[in-house]
Computed example of a mutant assay.
Amino acid sequence: MLQTVIAPIPGEVIQIAGGYIYGLPLGVIYTISEMLLGADIVDMFWLILTSFVKNLSAGNLLDQTKVKKR
């Protein structure tokens, strides 16, 4: 999961360590599932950040009486 969230960590090191610790079948399963979990965490972070920025957009900061509505 760290190789997905923290980009400078090389993925091969994590994958080899997973294979060494858990064996080949479980190492593959754990590594793939943790990579998917890490990707989901990063996606949720960007989803929350973009929705927060969208709520702070210039249209919401202006006085609503001066903004034309379509």
Rank of each mutant, 00 (worst) to 15 (best):
T4F: 13
I29M: 11
L62Q: 12
A39F: 02
M1N: 07
G18A: 09
R70N: 11
M35H: 01
Y30T: 06
F45G: 09
Q64W: 02
Q15D: 00
D40P: 04
M1L: 09
V53I: 15
N55L: 12
A39C: 13
Q15M: 08
A17W: 12
N60C: 00
D43T: 03
L37M: 13
Y20P: 04
Y20H: 07
I48A: 15
V28C: 07
A17E: 10
L36V: 08
M35L: 09
I29Q: 06
S51W: 10
K69V: 12
P8Y: 00
Q64N: 03
I41G: 06
Q15N: 07
A39W: 01
T4S: 13
V5Y: 05
I14A: 03
I48M: 13
I41H: 07
N60H: 15
V42N: 06
R70A: 01
N60A: 10
L47F: 05
K69S: 09
G27A: 01
Q3Y: 03
M44G: 09
R70W: 14
G19I: 13
P25H: 00
Y20C: 03
L49P: 04
L2K: 11
W46T: 00
M35W: 10
T50E: 13
G18P: 04
P10Y: 03
S33P: 02
E34T: 04
L26V: 08
I14K: 02
L26Y: 06
K69R: 13
G23T: 00
Y30P: 00
N55R: 14
Q64R: 14
S33N: 11
K68F: 14
I21P: 06
D63R: 05
N60Q: 12
Y22D: 02
I9A: 13
I6W: 10
M1H: 07
L49A: 14
T4W: 00
L62G: 06
P8N: 01
A17S: 14
L56M: 05
T31N: 15
V42K: 01
G59K: 09
G59A: 07
T4I: 08
I32T: 08
L37V: 04
I29A: 14
K66N: 04
I6F: 14
L56D: 01
K66F: 12
P10D: 08
L37H: 01
Y20F: 08
